[in-house]
Design a protein around this nucleic acid. Sequence first.
DNA 1: TTGCTACATAGGAATCATTCCTAAACAGGA
DNA 2: TCCTGTTTAGGAATGATTCCTATGTAGCAA
Lengths: 159, 159
Amino acid sequence: MTMNLSLTDIQQTFRDCGLKSTPQRTAIYQALVHSTAHPTAENLFTQVSPAYPMLSLNTVYYTLGVLRKAGLVQEVNVGHDRARFDANLSPHHHVICLGCHAILDVMDPRLNRLSSPLGIPKDFEITSHQVAFRGYCGTCRRSRSSMTTSPSGKRPAIQ
Amino acid sequence: MTMNLSLTDIQQTFRDCGLKSTPQRTAIYQALVHSTAHPTAENLFTQVSPAYPMLSLNTVYYTLGVLRKAGLVQEVNVGHDRARFDANLSPHHHVICLGCHAILDVMDPRLNRLSSPLGIPKDFEITSHQVAFRGYCGTCRRSRSSMTTSPSGKRPAIQ
DNA sequence: TTGCTACATAGGAATCATTCCTAAACAGGA
DNA sequence: TCCTGTTTAGGAATGATTCCTATGTAGCAA
Ligand SMILES: [Mn+2]
Ligand SMILES: [Mn+2]
Ligand SMILES: [Zn+2]
Ligand SMILES: [Zn+2]
């Protein structure tokens, strides 16, 4: 989330990347830029839909693909379930709640400079790294401590 | 991969965990223990099938679920595509090839003691962390450097 | 050793996120 | 304004994983 990015800023960004500026694309990217929740495609669809009732989930996927190829969006590779998206491009890390699958940003510059890993093949070229901290958020921690015989765990909504 | 674990060792492990010891379960776990490739369910199915022609992929999934609940196996949460499994329970990290999706272990103890992250809610309880290094393995690096107009990228097989 | 029972297996169907396909709409440049 | 390649919407297809269920069997107790 690069602070409040106005509609015209976004359109300029698209122009800079050689991307056509359509209302749907703009709305989807704007929703993502203004979120820190690392929403899923469907989250974005749900959020943008009211303003564009004809919007297709398909378009959300297509748009995210385009934005990813343009380098404006990254997939947060955490869990193998549904994809989570992030418009925060600065190098950063994540804390993941094992209960509700919330993902929080960790902007800790100390983590950006880890020693390169020992014991991997010499010809392996590392281009980036990311630290994933896992645990339980306050909400999930409280629900677990009560019901010891947890039915299946509460899930505070994403986004 | 905890060094060569014999069949009887595995059966003992199952007994210790209160798990029934069936031929399929034993074969699946043994295949996983002896692999460092972080195979998928289907990889394990393919590997174990010849010895158990009646084996169902379903059973592989069920078995991995049981082993996971017993704490004998972890899912390597890297990418949101298909699940990768790991019987290496000691704290360690991974290098992931963006070309062929190979996953290598990084047993670097320096990475096991990272400073706890700044700027997250006080009531968030971190239970573990893992570093994911990304890049390109030698094979993939060579294939990319040649075909600049890469058709879609070669994929050296997993496992 | 035998029988019981809860757990395991196999196979098929169901689910669900994501991708593919295609016709119609449209942004942006000529 | 017109053209063309991109984008969109909707529907179908894909593919990993889960669900359902009948049958099989490991482990325990008699
Ligand atoms: Mn982030
Ligand atoms: Mn590993
Ligand atoms: Zn939580
Ligand atoms: Zn590779």
